[in-house]
C-alpha cells in the first residue's frame, strides 16, 4: 500500500518536473531579451530539476543513491544563482542593456 503510494508520488514528481523543464525551455524561446530569459532558466534550474530529483529519490528509498541525489540537488541550487550572477555581470559589462517596459505602460 505505502509502496504503491510512494511510487505514485514519485511518478507525479517526475512528470511535473519534466513539465516545468519544458515550460522553462519554452520561456527561454519566447522571452524578448536576455535578462527575462534568466527567469525562464531559473524555472528549470529550481523546480524542474528539484522535482525530477525528488522523484528519483522516492524511487531509490533510503540508500547512498539518495544521498548522491541530494548532493546533486544541493549543488545545483548553490551554483545556479552564482552562474546567473556571473552571466548578468558579464552581459552588463559587455554592454547588453535590459529591455524595459515592453507593452506600453
Amino acid at each position: 500500500m505505502t509502496m504503491a503510494a510512494i511510487d505514485a508520488l514519485s511518478w507525479v514528481c517526475l512528470v511535473t518536473g519534466g513539465f516545468f523543464g519544458i515550460v522553462g525551455g519554452i520561456g527561454l524561446l519566447r522571452f524578448p531579451d536576455l535578462f527575462s530569459r534568466f527567469h525562464a532558466a531559473g524555472v528549470t534550474d529550481t523546480l524542474g530539476a528539484g522535482l525530477v530529483l525528488i522523484g528519483l529519490m522516492l524511487q531509490a528509498g533510503w540508500s547512498l543513491i539518495t544521498i548522491k541525489l541530494v548532493l546533486i540537488l544541493a549543488f545545483g541550487l548553490f551554483t545556479s544563482p552564482t552562474a546567473t550572477h556571473a552571466l548578468a555581470k558579464a552581459a552588463l559589462r559587455g554592454k547588453v542593456k535590459p529591455l524595459l517596459r515592453r507593452k506600453g505602460t
Binding site: 516545468f20 515550460v23 522553462g24 519554452i26 520561456g27 519566447r30 522571452f31 524578448p32 531579451d33 535578462f35 527575462s36 527567469h39 525562464a40 531559473g42 524555472v43 529550481t46 523546480l47 535590459p98 529591455l99 524595459l100 517596459r101 515592453r102 507593452k103 505602460t105
Partner: peptide, 20 residues
C-alpha cells in the same frame, strides 16, 4: 514564484513587464 513565472510563460499574450 515558479508557478507565477510558469503562468507568465504559458499565457499566449506574454504578460511580462521587465523592470529594474
Amino acid at each position: 514564484a515558479n508557478f507565477v513565472v510558469a503562468r507568465c510563460i504559458l499565457t499566449p499574450s506574454l504578460p511580462v513587464k521587465p523592470t529594474l
